[in-house]
Amino acid sequence: MALNVGCAARPGKARKNKTGSWRVFRPVFESEQCTKCGMCALVCPEGCVIETEEGEFVPDYEYCKGCGICAEVCPKKGIRMEQEEK
């Protein structure tokens, strides 16, 4: 996408701002340890841990800023923070 001259932008919702690019550490969800307690989704400050139809919890990397709170609270220690390669 080419840059807009003068950094001009149309109005939009925060959804348009893909904050995933800010991330330094990426949460990696290891589903085999997951008991589907949902704590990760509950504490995510960005609301970007999504429950799938199968009841799995997955992060939305387009918006996840990598704060690591989900990894901290996961009672099974089933979320691993990995450094992003940029």
Binding site: L3, G6, C7, A8, S21
Partner: peptide
């Protein structure tokens, strides 16, 4: 004008740019 402020077709100018975009601007 290349583009202009217009209440009927609003834009913002000089929006923030993260480290992913600032250098390019």
């Amino acid at each position: 004008p290349y583009h202009r402020l217009d209440a009927k077709d609003p834009i913002s100018m000089g929006m923030y740019a993260t480290p992913d975009y600032y250098m390019e601007f």
